[in-house]
């Protein structure tokens, strides 16, 4: 069953159209990776799904309800979490406060969810009183993911979660992504250097110049010579 359906969506910034009719689908519990070169429209796609950009054509459906053009603070209530690529934390707030903000829309107790996140990223529990602005890139990424998980979303969207991280840290983040997925959360990842990400994905899409180019299982995309040469650095 499809959780998220993006159907022929056209979007961009002002008059500058970046996506020229992109379609993707994420099933419940799946891990999906969208890859493509710089400027392919990957981040634009995520921003459009989350309502930060309004599509000029096409439909977006989430959990069987249309969410096309819905504003971000309403999309988040439908059960979608989003971790932008940059500026994805509140630097002057502590780890604990960042996570607390993730639960802003809840009026009831969220300590159970908080404990789950501290179990997922134990290092954050030790540093919960530290300001995130002073933490390393890997720790910031964990805070950013933790923040987006506070509402126990059905779908977590990650924009280049491993960008600018050392290989061992990137591997750790991917391992955590698999663990999050195992708890029943569907994952949509956008990646530029995507071999690691495709390995753990159920399916993948290749975007180029704002259009769908390839779509296949993660394994098949990795094995596909055209994809390899053009988008995975040979």
């Amino acid at each position: 069953m499809s959780l998220l359906t993006v159907n022929a969506v056209t979007s961009g910034y002002g008059d500058m159209e970046i996506l020229h009719g992109v379609s993707i689908e994420v099933g419940a519990g799946e891990i999906i990776t969208v890859i493509g070169p710089n400027g392919a429209g990957k981040s634009t796609l995520m921003k459009t799904i989350f309502g930060l950009l309004t599509p000029t054509a096409g439909q977006i459906t989430f959990a069987e309800e249309e969410i096309t053009g819905l504003s971000p603070n309403l999309v988040v209530r439908r059960g979608m979490g989003y971790v932008p690529q940059v500026e994805n934390i509140f630097p002057s707030l502590t780890v604990h406060e960042n996570l607390e903000m993730g639960a802003f829309i809840l009026t009831d107790d969220f300590s159970g969810q908080l404990e789950e996140i501290y179990e997922l990223f134990p290092i954050l529990k030790d540093r919960r009183k530290q300001r995130v602005g002073k933490m390393s890139g890997g720790e910031r990424q964990m805070v950013a993911m933790g923040r987006a998980l506070m509402l126990d979303p059905k779908l977590l969207m990650l924009d280049e979660p491993s960008a600018a991280l050392a290989p061992n840290l990137a591997a750790m983040i991917f391992e955590r992504i698999v663990a999050i997925n195992a708890s029943g959360v569907a994952i949509l990842i956008v990646e530029q250097n995507a071999k690691e990400s495709l390995k753990l994905s159920d399916r993948g899409y290749v975007l180029a110049s704002g259009r769908n180019r390839f779509e296949d299982t993660g394994e098949n995309l990795l094995a596909n010579e055209d994809v390899g040469q053009l988008y995975l650095g040979g």
């Binding site: 930060l52 971000p72 988040v76 509140f90 630097p91 903000m101 993730g102 802003f104 923040r147």
Partner: peptide, 22 residues
């Protein structure tokens, strides 16, 4: 909670909206 949301919004307005802060 509102005080923290104010600091969060001052830090990063776009992320505050993505987080569901009104």
């Amino acid at each position: 909670k509102m005080g923290k949301a104010m600091r969060a919004t001052a830090d990063n307005n776009a992320l505050a909206r993505v987080t569901g802060i009104n």
